[in-house]
Design a protein around this nucleic acid. Structure first.
Length: 498
DNA sequence: GTTAGGG
DNA sequence: CCCTAAC
C-alpha cells in the first residue's frame, strides 16, 4: 500500500503549492516542510505505524490521501495570506473578521501553554485526527456557515463566562472517549468519532468550527474556492501573531502531516510516561488539565510548592499548538470539565489561568516588596545575621507564605545593590530616582548600609577565612537587638561574619 | 533542605 | 523571580 500511495503523493498538484509555500516560509520552516516532504515521499516505517496506530487498513488509502489533501489545503491557505480573508468571508463582514481573528489571536496567546500540556495536546491531536476522517462529512460541510460558527467560537472565547459555560455542559462521555483514544494509541472507531463529534457539537458549539476549519475540503469534491473558507483564517493568524507563537503555529501547520505520520518523539514519550506514572495510568489528561487550568497562583500558595516534575518545561509541540489554538476554548473547557471542578470554579480557574499565563510565563507572581517587609527583613538580618534566611523567614515572615528564604536573600541582595548605588549617586543629588522605583526611606537605607558593612554579603566575602575565628567582633555588634549568632556549620560556609 | 550565585 | 550547584 505504501507503494500505492507514493505516486499519488508525488503527483499531488498541491505539492507545487507547498513548494512555493515552503519558499515563502523561513528557512527553519522550510526545513520542516522539507522534512515533511521527505516523509511523504518516502514510504518509511512511519506510514506503517500510522496505519497501525489509527487502525486503517488498505481500504483506507483514500482517507490517507484525504489527509494529504488536507495538508495541502492547509499550505495553500497559508500562502493565500491575510488578504484572502476579505474575499472569503464576504458574508461575514469586517466585524466578523475582527471578532474571529481577535478571538483566535487571544487563543493563540494560550498556545504556548497548551503546548506544554502533552496529554492534552495529544488528546487533541488524536481527537482531531479522528474527526478528520468521519464518513459523515456532509454534516460538517460548512460553506457559508463556517463563518457563523467561527463567530460563535470567537465570541465565546471572548466572553469570560461563555466558553466555560458551554463547557460545563459537556458530557463526560466525550471526554472519556478522548482519553480512551489516547490510551489506545489513537485507535478509535468511527462510531466513536461520530459520537464525539455529535456530542461536542451538540454540547459545545464552539467545537464544531474547529473541525470544519481543518476539515479536508476535497472530501466532498469541493473545489478550492469553497475550501478557502478556512484558509484565510489560518493565514491571517500566522501573519498577525508576530513572534514566537506565530512561528510555532506555522510550524504546526507545516508539521501537520509530519506529526501525523510520525511516532511520538522520545521526549514526548518521556514526558508522557512521566506524567502517566505520576498520576496513574491514563489520568494524565486529567492531571495535566488540572495542572494547567487549576494551578492558580493563589495568594497563600507558596510558589516553591509548585509541582516541578508534573509541570515540566515547555516543549514545543507544533501540531498541538495548531490544534490547541484552533480549538483552545472548547478543548480547554472540555478538559476542565473533566477536572471535577465545579462549573463556577472551572470558570474562574480558566480566566485566572489565562490571565496569569499570558502575563508572565516565567515569573509566577511578582510581589512587590513593601516598605514594611523591607524593614522586617532588615530587622531580621540584624537579628539573625545574613544568611540565616530560613530563620528570618520563619520568624519574621511566617505570615507571608509567598516570601521564601530565597526571596529574602534576593531582596537583601537587591537592597545592598541599591543602597550602594544610592551611596554613589548620592553625591550627585538625592533626587536621583534612577535606581529607585520606590525610594526607600533614608533611615531604612542607612540601616541597610550599616548592615551591609557589618554583614557583608557573601559575595564580598573576604578571602582570608582565618578572620572568621580571629575577628568575630566585627560581625556581632549589630545595632539592633543583636542576637548571638549560633555557629552552625552551614553558616560558616563562606561567611566571614560567623 | 538550605544557601549562594547567576540568569 | 527562577534555576542550579554546592553544601
Amino acid at each position: 500500500m505504501r507503494t500505492e500511495r507514493k505516486p499519488h503523493l508525488i503527483k499531488k498538484p498541491a505539492d507545487a503549492k507547498r513548494q512555493s509555500v515552503d519558499e515563502s516560509l523561513g528557512p527553519g520552516l522550510k526545513d520542516e516542510a522539507t522534512e515533511v516532504e521527505h516523509l511523504l515521499v518516502e514510504p518509511k516505517s512511519e506510514h506503517v505505524s500510522v496505519d497501525r496506530v489509527f487502525g486503517f487498513g488498505k481500504e483506507n488509502i483514500e482517507k490517507h490521501l484525504k489527509m494529504e489533501d488536507f495538508s495541502c489545503a492547509f499550505d495553500y491557505g497559508w500562502k493565500i495570506g491575510s488578504g484572502g480573508l476579505d474575499s472569503i468571508h464576504g458574508q461575514g463582514g469586517d466585524d466578523l473578521k475582527l471578532e474571529v481573528l481577535d478571538g483566535l489571536l487571544d487563543e493563540v496567546d494560550e498556545v504556548d501553554d497548551i503546548q506544554a500540556a502533552y496529554d492534552l495536546s495529544s488528546a487533541c491531536e488524536d481527537f482531531l485526527l479522528d474527526i478528520e476522517f468521519p464518513e459523515k462529512f456532509s454534516e460538517l460541510d460548512c460553506g457559508p456557515y463556517v463563518g457563523s460558527n467561527l463567530r460563535n467560537s470567537s465570541s465565546e472565547s471572548h466572553s469570560p463566562g461563555g466558553s466555560s459555560n458551554s463547557v460545563g455542559g459537556m458530557s463526560e462521555s466525550s471526554i472519556v472517549t478522548v482519553q480512551e483514544s489516547n490510551s489506545k494509541n489513537g485507535v478509535l472507531g468511527k462510531m466513536v468519532n461520530c459520537d464525539i463529534h455529535h456530542t461536542i457539537r451538540s454540547k459545545c458549539g464552539c467545537q464544531a468550527p474547529v473541525m470544519e476549519t481543518i476539515r479536508p475540503s476535497k472530501e466532498h469534491g469541493q473545489d478550492f474556492v469553497e475550501s478557502d473558507d478556512e484558509k484565510p483564517l489560518v493565514s491571517f493568524i500566522v501573519s498577525n501573531k508576530k513572534v514566537k507563537s506565530s512561528v510555532k503555529v506555522t510550524k504546526g501547520a507545516t508539521l501537520l502531516r509530519q506529526k501525523r505520520l510520525r511516532k511520538p518523539t522520545k521526549r514526548y514519550i518521556e514526558e508522557f510516561s512521566r506524567n502517566s506514572t505520576t498520576s496513574g495510568k491514563n489520568k494524565c489528561l486529567k492531571v495535566r488539565s488540572q495542572e494547567e487550568f487549576s494551578q492558580v497562583p493563589s495568594e497563600s500558595q507558596s510558589r516553591r510548592g509548585r509541582p516541578k516534575k508534573i509541570m515540566p518545561k515547555m516543549v514545543e509541540l507544533p501540531l498541538s499548538a495548531l490544534f490547541s489554538f484552533l480549538s483552545l476554548t472548547s478543548v480547554a473547557c472540555e478538559f476542565e470539565s473533566d477536572c471535577e471542578l465545579s462549573a463556577s470554579e472551572s470558570e474562574d480557574e480558566c480566566k485566572r489561568t489565562k490571565r496569569s499565563k499570558t502575563a508572565c510565563d516565567r515569573r509566577k507572581h511578582q510581589r512587590m516588596w513593601t516598605l514594611a517587609e523591607v524593614i522586617k527583613l532588615v530587622d531580621g538580618i540584624a537579628q539573625y545575621g545574613v544568611g540565616r534566611w530560613t530563620d528570618i523567614k520563619k520568624l519574621l515572615f511566617a505570615s507571608s507564605a509567598y516570601r521564601t528564604p530565597v526571596d529574602l536573600r534576593d531582596k537583601w541582595r537587591n537592597l545592598l545593590r541599591s543602597s550602594s548605588a544610592h551611596k554613589h549617586n548620592r553625591k550627585e543629588g538625592e533626587t536621583n530616582v534612577k535606581h529607585y522605583v520606590r525610594p526607600l526611606p533614608k533611615t531604612v537605607v542607612c540601616r541597610i548600609r550599616e548592615l551591609a558593612t557589618i554583614h557583608p554579603y557573601p559575595k564580598a566575602r573576604s578571602p582570608n577565612l582565618s578572620s572568621i575565628n580571629s575577628d568575630p567582633s566585627s560581625k556581632q555588634p549589630t545595632t539592633t537587638k543583636a542576637a548571638p549568632i549560633n555557629t552552625h556549620g552551614r553558616n560558616l560556609r563562606g561567611k566571614k561574619w560567623n
